[in-house]
Design a protein around this nucleic acid. Structure first.
Lengths: 190, 190
DNA sequence: CCAGAATGGAACTCCAACGTTCCAATTCTG
DNA sequence: CAGAATTGGAACGTTGGAGTTCCATTCTGG
């Protein structure tokens, strides 16, 4: 329960997010190897691929949720809140990348997924939208754009930044200013 | 040679881009069905999955390449050129979405999963970068951002817009103004 | 209208990943 | 230290999609 169990489980979920985030069809043995664990052990914790995916998704959602909470986007000016939010999302970049590739999140995708209507973050999602609306009301954000589109723009830029880091095109500390500047001012000169 | 062969081939490649763009692991029978073609026929045109993927990638690259050429981004003001480019890319949205999910674009690393996000085109790629640099030189685009980042931003927004259309969140004619406005001015009020 | 091309369905084989079981070795824990 | 828990390796059986072959049917073009 406490000792090695939890540590092993966490290691598997961490590796799973990274490996499956990079390639959603990665083989189960590949995940096991990345986690530094035997294939048998992997199956012992997560009997089948499906249960590993569910757990990884849940775990990643929780991590993102926590990051958004830590950003305290209800407080301060909308612009500052947005900046903190960007930084928070970048800090959980690996989990974000995994979630973006997961068909069951925002489930309009794939063939099946019958009753899976889970948003990326049921609660965090709403809070972000709320913050965006507040920003529009206070005149800090463009109210010609829908809150939904602004949110998607935010995610797209953060995602792009995280991948750039992963590919070595950007350093980790450079990505937040870059995303923030682009998000706030677009590509026009300042 | 020309008659039915070409039409069938084109139908398969079209369906392939759509189906595999939505889910890169879609089954071969699924592609055949989407193309309105028997599984046998699919194999007759593309002996194995690999050759179908190559052909689809090549075909999509050509379509995107053509769209960029049609946009004539070397002419006129950089801002107008960028707007035409956005419209052109949206018009080949299905192909773009497929290419973004194709691991082999950019990274030709051996069998193991190459890098995810990548440049859709080799040559068009260069022309876009060139146009961005021209825009920066003329003071139309922010020269604090790297051309590479601006290009990735462009793609990310176009991709997001195309997916929004596919999910029914945006109408096809609404996406170009939305992407263009966001790209040019970010989320700040105008 | 007819010969040849094109197609699709059925019935196979093949294979890689999945999932399971068993057991010996190692590591916790009281 | 002894017993329990945890682990990993090996060797299975199972499964679903890939790829192939054969043949009857439909379509195309001269």
């Amino acid at each position: 329960m406490s000792g090695p169990r939890e540590r092993t489980r966490a290691a598997i979920l961490e590796a799973s997010a990274v490996v499956l985030g990079r390639n959603h069809d990665a083989t189960l043995p590949a995940v096991a190897e990345a986690a530094g664990v035997g294939r048998t052990t992997l199956h012992r914790y997560f009997p089948d691929r499906e249960s590993l995916l569910s757990a990884t998704t849940a775990d990643s959602l929780a991590a993102v949720e926590q990051a958004v909470t830590d950003a305290a986007i209800e407080d301060g000016s909308p612009v500052d809140a947005m900046r903190r939010l960007v930084a928070a999302m970048v800090s959980v970049g690996d989990r974000l990348i995994y979630l973006f590739g997961d068909p069951r999140v925002l489930g309009v995708d794939d063939d099946d997924c019958p009753d899976e209507d889970a948003q990326p973050e049921p609660s965090a999602d709403q809070r972000v939208i709320q913050m965006i609306k507040r920003g529009q009301a206070e005149g800090a954000f463009d109210d010609q754009l829908t809150p939904d589109w602004i949110q998607q723009t935010l995610w797209a830029l953060v995602y792009t930044g995280c991948e750039a880091v992963r590919n070595g095109e950007l350093t980790r500390h450079a990505v937040v200013p870059m995303v923030t500047r682009t998000l706030e001012g677009g590509i026009r000169p300042a």
